[in-house]
Design a protein around this nucleic acid. Structure first.
Length: 651
RNA sequence: GCCGAUGUAGCUCAGUUGGUCAGAGCAGCUGAUUUGUAAUCAGCAGGUCGUGGGUUCGAAUCCCCCCAUCGGCUCCA
């Protein structure tokens, strides 16, 4: 007998070799049907794998990540089996479960190109196979046998994977006619896989290495019930409605022109107004936090970037230098503001008493991004950073870092961004070659970040090897409507540029010292920030940011004069107001302006004209009743006051 | 950059096997209507079918180059 400990701490004796499935069935037959995988002493197992010693277990259902994981992993195998049947000779790379579904990287035989048109057929085959209720059988195999198996099969990808594994840890899973090298775990059989949807096909480099062969990656998702799949697909459709590229067009926020060039956004009046509001907001915050504004040109001498090291590192990936016609001097579009700011720092001597010096600029930079990377406003070739560089003493590093985290918090709180990841990126200790700077400085900077995050109680994920070449950093990442992650705010420590630009300050000891630099951009770039803001709000911006806050809708021409009075009154009260003077019925004006997501629609007819009032309609919420102009202006002011109260700065 | 898909009026889309196939709705313009909380009616105008080649008696439709967009991969100072 063995002792099994349940998550609630209770224990029970079972015969040796009992399986998760049997334990579940013993608790309740219904549970046995729902359970998908089991954790045994913290390791996720198949439900059918015999437990041979005392163990702490957890049973996983669909609601648990571990349950979904087994479900989707098994689905990937099911798809692989379907592919092997439909396209014999297909070779297989890896096929993991992912956050939403699964994929498999495959190399079809005979130059077959799998496209989206093939997906329905694959889905159909998967359905057939799932209904066969194929069992997944786990099998331990020696490295030698595994290698032989896949050499015979001619699958060089699996051979490569196996050759990197340790003998004694290799397992195969067999289901139907398909055998896969796999760590598991899997469902007992394929029967729970009821609803299948293959989503898209993409190219993916083998082992993520662009120098190696590109395999065909097929993404899919499966569910235990058709209804769940329908709901998932509906959710995806809804998310697409909030895509900033779609809303940007519909709400006339920004556009692109092939003639201007790809990845170069054109901000339309409504978008520019929104952007200006964000800039005003951050300027105010930065004033309070002791930043000094600076302005620098869009181009800089090539020598500037040779000094900064950017030319060496990124010269090939930048827009090519341009030459002056007479002297042939080379200039570059600026890819970074920091070299310019370093020169500003150098323009006069600094005392330790002056530090920190905080130079801020909404600086527009240009970077050559590969064409396949461009994406709406989130990834562009010309963008404006809410950039600033803090030059401080080494002993001020942590405190300055904390202040920047405060600014990021302030922005995220003000705009209701709650769902973000904070990632500390440290250097890869195994490969210190690719980084610039002394070990001692790296160590000190990494500690400062870690401590600052701990002090601000910021939940972070630490990733080694993700640091910039010049220093460690803290990034704030958010997701777009389709779940893709993007970096917004960033705070980066840099010991490198002060060195390269020979920046100095005079210390209390009357000696020259080198300052430390912090690069920071709480929005990241205005383009990306606005794209996320659009998706986050679905285009319904908070009143203080809305490009147009109200629109006056006269019922007929008879009330146009009064409507104009209302317009002037509100504009004079600093409420951004428009008028809809079209010769249309009121229902039409309401519909069109609701769709433009203007926060307040003010309907004025003869009744309102007589009494000096407006009939107020809040976007998305309907009629709010009639009120005087003064009362409406007060309402708007109060709403804005509440929204911007979150901006209160505590320094 | 790589793999795959897509590209028809400002927008959203129809165009069957190459032969009145250059269309519709919305937007725009003109006129009528003077309107009370999510689309008033009528008329007009608008496109070298992404660009450039090619095949053909004939190409939006077939082939090739290029450009852009979309989904991924890789990259992201």
């Amino acid at each position: 007998m063995i002792k099994i400990t349940f998550p609630d701490g209770k224990t029970k004796e079972y015969p040796e070799g009992i399986t998760g499935k049997e334990i579940a069935a013993g608790i309740h037959p219904a549970l046995a049907k729902e359970v998908l995988s089991i954790s045994v002493n913290g390791e996720i197992w198949d439900l059918t794998r015999p437990i041979t010693g005392d163990a702490a277990i957890r049973l996983h259902k669909w609601e648990d990540e571990e349950g979904k994981h087994a479900f989707w992993h098994s689905s990937a195998h099911l798809m692989a089996e379907a592919l092997e049947i439909l396209y014999p000779g297909t070779k297989f790379g890896i096929g993991p479960a992912i956050e939403n579904g699964f994929y498999y990287d495959v190399d079809p035989a005979g130059g077959k190109v799998i496209t989206e048109a093939d997906l329905p057929e694959i889905e159909k085959k998967m359905q057939e196979l799932a209904r066969e209720k194929q069992t997944f059988r786990r099998e331990e195999i020696s490295k030698k046998d595994a290698l032989q198996l896949y050499r015979e099969k001619g699958d060089e990808y699996k051979v490569e994977l196996i050759s990197e594994l340790e003998d004694g840890t290799i397992t195969l899973y067999r289901s139907g006619h398909f055998t896969d090298l796999c760590r598991g775990p899997h469902l007992p059989d394929t029967s729970p896989i009821k609803a299948i949807k293959l989503l898209n096909v993409a190219g993916a480099y083998w082992r993520g290495d662009e120098k190696r062969k590109q395999l065909t990656r097929i993404y899919g998702i499966t569910f235990p019930k058709q209804k769940m799949l329908d709901e998932y697909l509906e959710m995806l459709e809804k998310a697409k409605e909030r895509d900033h590229r779609k809303l940007g067009k519909e709400l006339e926020l920004f556009t692109f022109s092939q003639k201007v060039g790809q990845g170069l956004p054109l901000w339309l009046p409504r978008g520019a107004r929104l952007r200006d509001k964000l800039v005003d907001f951050l300027r105010k915050v930065q004033d309070i936090y002791g930043y000094d504004p600076v302005v620098t040109p869009h181009i800089g001498h090539k020598d500037l970037y040779i000094t900064s090291g950017h030319y060496d590192k990124y010269g090939k990936d930048s827009f090519r230098p341009m030459k002056t016609p007479q002297e042939g001097e080379e200039f570059m579009l600026k890819p970074m503001n920091c070299p310019h700011h370093c020169e500003i720092y150098k323009s006069k001597p600094h005392s330790y008493r002056d530090l920190p010096v905080r130079l801020a600029e909404f600086g527009t930079v240009y970077r050559y991004e590969m064409s396949g990377e461009l994406h709406g406003l989130t990834r562009v070739r010309g963008f404006t950073q809410d950039d600033a560089h803090i030059f401080c003493r080494p002993d001020q590093l942590k405190e300055e870092f904390i202040k920047v985290i405060d600014i990021v918090f302030l922005i995220f709180n003000s705009l209701g961004f709650e769902d973000y990841d904070a990632q500390i990126s440290l250097r890869d200790p195994a490969d210190t070659e690719k980084y610039i700077g002394s070990d001692e400085n790296w160590e000190r900077a990494e500690q400062a970040i870690i401590e600052a995050c701990a002090e601000k109680k910021l939940k972070t994920r630490t990733v080694r090897g993700e640091a910039a070449f010049y220093g460690p950093k803290l990034d704030f990442m958010v997701r777009d409507v389709l779940g893709r992650k993007w970096q917004l705010g960033t705070i980066q420590v840099d010991y490198n540029l002060p060195e390269r630009f020979e920046l100095e300050y005079i210390g209390a000891d009357d000696q020259r010292h080198r300052p430390v630099m912090i690069h920071r951009a709480p929005f990241g770039s205005l383009e990306r920030f606005v794209s996320i803001l659009i998706e986050h709000t679905g285009g319904k911006f908070p009143l203080w940011l809305a490009p147009d806050q109200a629109i006056v809708l006269p019922i007929s021409e008879k009330t146009q004069d009064y409507a104009k009075k209302v317009l002037y009154f509100l504009n004079n009260s600093d409420i951004r107001t428009l008028i809809d003077n079209r010769n249309e019925k009121i229902g039409r004006k309401i519909r069109d302006n609701e769709l433009l997501k203007i926060p307040y629609l003010l309907i004025v007819g003869e009744k309102e004209a007589e009494s000096g009032t407006v009939s107020v309609r809040r976007q998305g919420e309907g009629d709010q009743g009639v009120m005087s102009l003064e009362a409406f202006a007060g309402l708007v002011k109060e709403e804005i006051r509440k929204q911007t109260a979150a901006h209160t700065v505590n320094v």
